[in-house]
Structures are given as structure tokens and as C-alpha cells.
């Protein structure tokens, strides 16, 4: 559980970078806009988690699993996120198994992963 309100904030620099990266170069983003998008993202997490918890509850589980998140995403009509998320999940699983097989290669794999993910999103 979050102790303070600040615990519920996402790192501002990261949010700012994501916003900047998905807009054309010449666009400036107002301070208020950044702050409100960051808040919106936090509320999105809460909203998504709530929906996922409902999914888990229906299956009589207390532990949130990847499938709950994916179901919740569709429930909330963010279907377009499903494909990139599935790709990520697949890579994550692969990276995990590779890590257990041979330690050390994981880092490189994950770097690639991220680049490809962002490209897909564009």
C-alpha cells in the first residue's frame, strides 16, 4: 500500500520523455499537460488493476496474472494494446527462460526488445 501521495506519482522525467517521443519534434508540451497526463497514467494503472483484480476474482484467485491484465485491457476497450503486450509477454517469458539457461544474455535481449517495441507502436 502506498504510504504517501507522492508514492502514487510516476517519475516525471520518464513520463515527459514518453510524451515527447510520441509527438512531432516541434511540439512543446505545457507543464500542466505533462502533470495531468502523468496523473491520468496513474489513474489508468489503478483502473486497469481494478479490472484485472475483478478478472482474477472471477477465477477465484487472489494473485494477479498476466492473463488477467490482458483480459482487463480488452474489457476497458484498449484492444489495440493487446498485440504489443502479447509480444512483450512472449519476449519476457523467453528472456526469463534464457536467463535461467545461460545467465548474462538477458540484458542484451531486453535492450533489443525495447527498441522493437517502441518501433511497433509508431
Amino acid at each position: 500500500m502506498a504510504e504517501k501521495v507522492e508514492d502514487l506519482n510516476l517519475p516525471a522525467a520518464t513520463v515527459a520523455r514518453i510524451i515527447k517521443d510520441c509527438l512531432p519534434d516541434h511540439i512543446s508540451v505545457g507543464k500542466d499537460a505533462k502533470a495531468v497526463i502523468s496523473k491520468a497514467a496513474v489513474v489508468f494503472i489503478l483502473y486497469l488493476t481494478g479490472a484485472a483484480a475483478e478478472q482474477a476474482q472471477q477465477s477465484k484467485r487472489k494473485v494477479l496474472q498476466a492473463q488477467d491484465i490482458l483480459n482487463a485491457i480488452e474489457d476497458l476497450e484498449f484492444d489495440e494494446f493487446t498485440a504489443p503486450l502479447l509480444t512483450l509477454l512472449e519476449r519476457f517469458k523467453q528472456a526469463k527462460s534464457r536467463k535461467s539457461a545461460s545467465k548474462g544474455k538477458k540484458d542484451a535481449a531486453e535492450d533489443e526488445e525495447e527498441e522493437e517495441e517502441t518501433m511497433e507502436e509508431d
Binding site: D7, I18, I37, F44, I45, T49, A52, V63, L64, F78
Partner: peptide, 30 residues
């Protein structure tokens, strides 16, 4: 941390947290 303050689930798997993090990023990008 944010997820835990949302609902009454006891625990979230690493995978689900990774997915939520990514979904959040996608959400901003959208």
C-alpha cells in the same frame, strides 16, 4: 506500489506488473 493501492488482490506476478507498466506507456503514447 500503485497497483497495490488499487484493489484487494494479494499479489501480482512479475509478468502482470511488466504488462501493466507497458500498458501505461502505451496509454500515454495513445
Amino acid at each position: 506500489t500503485i497497483m497495490k493501492s488499487s484493489s484487494d488482490h494479494e499479489h501480482a506476478t512479475k509478468e502482470s506488473i511488466v504488462l501493466v507498466a507497458k500498458a501505461t506507456e502505451l496509454f500515454i503514447q495513445k
